[in-house]
Design a protein around this nucleic acid. Structure first.
Lengths: 175, 175
DNA sequence: TGCCCGGAGTTGAAGCATCAAGTAATGTGG
DNA sequence: CCACATTACTTGATGCTTCAACTCCGGGCA
């Protein structure tokens, strides 16, 4: 366990750039949402995921899975969103220990107002810089990394409903 | 200004995965560093960048640029690192308004102890999932996005010293 | 020389994330 | 049917990040 396999130059370069993107991109997206809507990227995501759910309701744990967060983090955030009147919480009729979060009408309106600006920023920062091939590269590379980050299948919970067979990438060398 | 150009399905998928990676990857790396070294990814980066600088010293603003942070953030972090004895601050002899941060011997030792585990985690989470082509994709895509995030040239400040001509990607459709 | 502007850095307060407990309801073995 | 572990969720404390002042030094320029 003593032989460290360091990154070679290509990997080093890819990693440094990735690290820079990981710091700068969330900061930029947060800045836009904060400025235009007073929301965090995470709280926006929370509202958006609820808005896409039929009935606009989800149990806290299901919601936590779709936004890739701990229950604790979600609980704090939903408390704030509830204070703003965008979400409400009610005990589930089906089980005494689950709480369902519901997007209120005001919350839905908030999402509708916020979505276009956010989508534009995502497009500007990411997709305007990529051609079709770039988009595919991005999808494949992130899929491969996600496979490492979440070996179980929580990723199935969130990524997309309109999901095809989800495998259009070259063999990602995943053992 | 009314026609929102929404993301198409391919973009949507790429974006959701990217967003998931942006949340999960930093969390995973932070967890490893926290567990094994009691460091944040950011504070580790700070130490590491100093350790790669001849003389192990850098003015605060230069350091801030190489770690992609605000001066304020860096100032707080360096204060903590100084309290741990890994960094020291001294006024620059050359100009009365710059402060230089110096990596102490203890700090260098800390980096040496921490680096292998961190490199292993980066390899495990990213590069073990990618083949050579994947690494190139990642380098290209992140380069394109960085171009959007930082249209000026701060990226030149950090990414790498061993830098080649830096252009091995297909025309990234950057207007 | 004196004034003022801008760059370098620090600080304090406020917000958000994370961690460790804690509560409450539901299954599960005896 | 009663204890006990488990699941679902909440809460409070702590620490890191951000934002908005604020200080201090150096450079123009009149």
């Amino acid at each position: 366990m003593d032989e460290t396999r360091w990154l070679d130059d290509d990997e080093q370069r890819a990693w440094r750039r990735t690290a820079a993107v990981m710091t700068l991109l969330p900061a930029a997206l947060d800045a836009q949402l904060q400025r235009d809507a007073g929301l965090t990227q995470f709280s926006y995501l929370t509202l958006a995921m609820l808005s896409e759910t039929p009935g606009r309701t989800l149990p806290m744990s299901a919601l936590a899975a779709t936004v890739n967060s701990s229950l604790s983090r979600l609980s704090h955030v939903v408390a704030r969103l509830e204070a703003q009147g965008w979400v409400s919480r009610e005990p589930s009729p089906e089980s005494g220990r689950v709480t369902v979060a519901r997007l209120t009408d005001a919350g839905l309106e908030k999402v509708r107002q916020t979505a276009p600006g956010h989508a534009a920023e995502v497009r500007r920062l990411i997709f305007d810089a990529l051609d079709g091939e770039g988009v595919e590269s991005l999808a494949c590379v992130t899929a491969a990394i996600l496979g490492r980050l979440d070996p179980s299948g929580k990723l199935r919970a969130n990524p997309l409903r309109r999901g095809g067979p989800d495998q259009e990438c070259d063999p990602p060398a995943t053992a």
